[in-house]
Nucleic acid binder design. Structure first.
Lengths: 369, 369
DNA sequence: GACACATTCGTGAACGTTCACGGGAATCAC
DNA sequence: GTGATTCCCGTGAACGTTCACGAATGTGTC
C-alpha cells in the first residue's frame, strides 16, 4: 500500500455533505480512492489497464465527491472537439427551426456541438450574435442579414457560412435563386389566368419608409434605382422578373408577421380590388394574406390566388392549403453543414471554388394557387 | 529594443500564407510583435496599462497570424463561463422553438451560452441527449420524456431542470396542471352543449399497442389500471376529470403529427358519428383534426367543437381559428431559466423547496370551440 | 529458480491562458 | 537632483487534464 505521497490535493477532507466549497478535481478523487491521477483518468474514460475493482472504487469516490472533469482542461490537452455556433434571427418563425433542426442533427452526427443564438428579440444584429458566439465556438453558421465581412473579421481564420446574403469575405455562403423562384411563381400565376399581380415584401427591420402597406412600385418600371435599398433581394427579383416579362406587379411591404401581413393585404385589396394573384415574402405572412382574403369575402384561389414562400409544414394545415415556393430546409441545413465540414477539414478553401452554393425553390402546388 | 529571449515559440517562422500548420498561440503573437505574453493578453482583452501603439501592433500581428485565443485555456484559468445544455425532442414541432427561444433569450441575458440538442430524429432518447451534452455543459434544461434519475446521475452535481415529467431525483422540475386543464376544457365543452366528447392522445413513441385510432377507453370507467401505461399523463388527467364529473369520454391515440391525427380523427368520426366535442393532445394534431372534420363535411364548431393544447402561434392562422388550452411558452422558458439560475447561484437547493413548479394552462377562446 | 511477459499503476511534461507580482523608465514635485 | 509616483511591460506560477514513459507486481515457461 502506497501512502499518499502528497501531490498537493486540497487540504480539507471535504465531507460529501458540506456545500459547494471549491470544485472537486481529479486529485481529490485520486486521494479519496487512494490512487493516482492517471488511474482516475483510466477509470473515468473506460480505458484499459485498470483492475475492475479499482475502477469501481474510483468511480464511487468520484460519485461521492460529485466530481465532473473540467471540459476546459480536457479540451486543452486533447485538442478541441469542434463546436459550431448557429446564429438565427428568430426561432419563432417556423422557417428557422426547420433549418436549425437539420443543422443540429447533422452536426451531432459528426460529433460537433451546436451553440445556438437566437438573436433578434432584443433587437440585436447578426454581427452582435457572432460577437457573442465567437469566444465559444470554432465556426459559425448563420442567417446574419448582412455585414458578413465584419462577422468574418471577428472570427478571424475560423470558418463562417452565411445564408441568404452575399458571402462577401465570409468563408462560404448559401444563397437562393430568387430570380428562378420569381419567374416560376409569376409564370404559374399568369398561366392560371391571373392578370393583376401583387407581391408582398418584408419591410426592412430598421427602415420605416412610409406607412406599412403603402404601394411601393406599380406598373412596369420596377427595379430602378430608387427601389433598391427599399426592397429585399427577393422583392428585387420579383420586380426584375415581372419587368422582364412585361407584367404589371404591385409591390407592397409589410412587417414580418402574419398579423401585419393580414392588415397590409386588406389595404392592398381596397386599393386594388382587382388583384387576382398574390405572392408573399414567406409562408407565415402568406397565412395572414389568406386571412385577409377571407375577411374580404374573396374565394381562394377562384377570386385571387396566393403563393407563399419557404415551404414550412404550416402551409399544409391552412385552409385553403398553401401553394408555396418551397425550399427543402433539411437540404439547406445539409448544404451548410457539409460546406462547413469541407472548410474545417481543409478540403475546401475559404472563399474558394465550391464555397458559394445557389439553391433553388420549387413550386409545391396545393390549393391556394 | 529587447531581443526575443526565447520563451519557446514555434521554431518555424510561419508566413501568413502557409496553410493551417499548427495553431497560432499567444507566444507566436508575442514573438511576432516583439512583446511578451502578458502584453498580448492586455491588447486582446482591452485591458489598461498598454500603450495604444503597442496595442495596435499586437492586434495587427494577431490578425496576420490568424490568432484566436483558446477558449479552453481561457476557461481553465478564469473559471467557467456557464453554458447550459438544452435538450429538445423535436424542433419541428412549433411548441419547442417557442420555448427554446425564450430560454436562449434569457440565458443570453445572463451571459450564458446555450448548447442545443435536438435529439429524436435518429430515435435517440432524452438520456442519450444528456449524455451527449454532459461533457460540454454546466447544467441542462430539457424535455427528456422520462428517466430523470438516470439523466441526473450522468450530470452528477450539475443542475438538471426537467419539464413535463416527474422530477424524480432531478435538481428541479416544471410540470403542468393537466387536471386543471382537463377540467377547464371539459367544462367548457359541456357548457357549450357538447355531449359526446372525445380526447385524442398521443401514442407512446415506443409502444405500438393496437392500430392507431383504435378506441382505448369508452364509457365512464377510465383511469383504471389497464389504462395506465398506455395513456400519457395528459390523457390520464382527461380520463380522471371526465370520470369525476360523470361524462363519457372516448379516448383514442394517434402518432404525433397532423397527418396522423387527421386520419385517426376520420376513423373516430366513422366509429362515433355523434361526436360533438374533441380535445386534442396538442395544437399541431388539432390542426389535423380540423382537417378531418372538414373532410367529413362537418362544421366547426357548430357540428363539433375542437380544443387544442399548447397555444402555439399556428392556432390563430387556422380556419377556424383554434381554441386552445394555452401555455405561455415564454413564461415556461422563464421559469426554467430562473429555476436554473437559483440552482447555479446556490439560492436554491437541488430537490429542495421551490424546485418543483406547477404551471397552469388557460383557455384561449377562439373560433373552434 | 531465472527469465520473459503481461498487467496494473504512478510520475514528469505539456496543453495555452490569465493572475499576481515585480522591475525599469519616464514624469512630476520640491 | 533626489525621491515619489505613474505608466508600461515582463516573469513565475497556477488552472485540471491527458500523453508518454517507466516502475512494480504478478504469471507463466522451461
Amino acid at each position: 500500500m502506497t501512502t499518499s505521497s502528497g501531490e498537493t490535493s486540497s487540504g480539507l477532507g471535504q465531507g460529501a455533505s458540506t456545500g459547494a466549497s471549491k470544485r472537486a478535481t481529479i486529485l481529490d478523487v485520486a486521494a479519496a480512492a487512494g490512487v493516482s491521477r492517471q488511474t482516475v483518468t483510466r477509470a473515468m474514460n473506460a480505458m484499459p489497464g485498470i483492475r475492475p475493482e479499482t475502477r469501481a472504487r474510483v468511480q464511487e469516490a468520484a460519485r461521492q465527491l460529485g466530481y465532473t472533469p473540467s471540459r476546459f482542461a480536457k479540451g486543452l490537452v486533447q485538442g478541441a472537439r469542434t463546436s459550431v455556433g448557429l446564429a438565427i434571427p428568430d426561432l419563432t418563425n417556423p422557417y428557422y427551426p426547420a433549418f436549425a433542426s437539420s443543422v443540429v442533427e447533422l452536426a451531432t452526427q459528426r460529433g460537433w456541438h451546436v451553440v445556438m443564438d437566437d438573436y433578434g428579440h432584443g433587437g440585436a444584429t447578426g454581427v452582435e450574435s457572432v460577437q457573442h458566439l465567437a469566444p465559444q465556438v470554432d465556426a459559425v453558421i448563420g442567417y446574419l442579414g448582412g455585414a458578413a465581412d465584419e462577422a468574418q473579421a471577428i472570427l478571424g481564420r475560423r470558418p463562417l457560412v452565411v445564408l441568404d446574403q452575399p458571402a462577401g469575405s465570409a468563408s462560404g455562403g448559401i444563397t437562393f435563386d430568387y430570380d428562378h423562384a420569381a419567374q416560376t411563381a409569376l409564370e404559374h400565376l399568369q398561366a392560371r389566368g391571373c392578370r393583376q399581380l401583387a407581391y408582398i415584401d418584408r419591410a426592412w427591420a430598421g427602415a420605416d419608409l412610409g406607412a406599412p402597406g403603402s404601394v411601393r412600385a406599380g406598373g412596369p418600371t420596377p427595379g430602378t434605382d430608387p427601389v433598391r435599398g427599399v426592397m429585399t433581394v427577393r422583392g428585387q427579383a420579383f420586380a426584375r422578373s415581372a419587368a422582364a416579362s412585361g407584367m404589371a406587379l404591385t409591390v407592397v411591404v409589410s412587417p414580418e408577421s402574419a398579423a401585419a401581413a393580414r392588415q397590409v393585404t386588406r389595404r392592398l385589396l381596397e386599393d386594388r380590388p382587382g388583384t387576382d394573384g398574390i405572392v408573399v415574402f414567406n409562408d407565415v405572412m402568406a397565412a395572414g394574406a389568406l386571412k385577409a382574403l377571407a375577411d374580404s369575402g374573396r374565394a381562394v384561389p377562384a377570386d385571387c390566388a396566393v403563393i407563399g414562400m419557404d415551404g414550412i409544414p404550416l402551409g399544409e394545415l391552412l385552409t385553403p392549403e398553401l401553394t408555396t415556393l418551397a425550399l427543402d430546409l433539411r437540404e439547406v441545413g445539409r448544404a451548410a453543414v457539409e460546406l462547413l465540414d469541407g472548410l474545417l477539414t481543409g478540403s475546401l478553401d475559404p472563399g474558394g471554388p465550391g464555397t458559394e452554393l445557389l439553391l433553388r425553390h420549387h413550386l409545391v402546388l396545393r390549393q391556394s394557387a
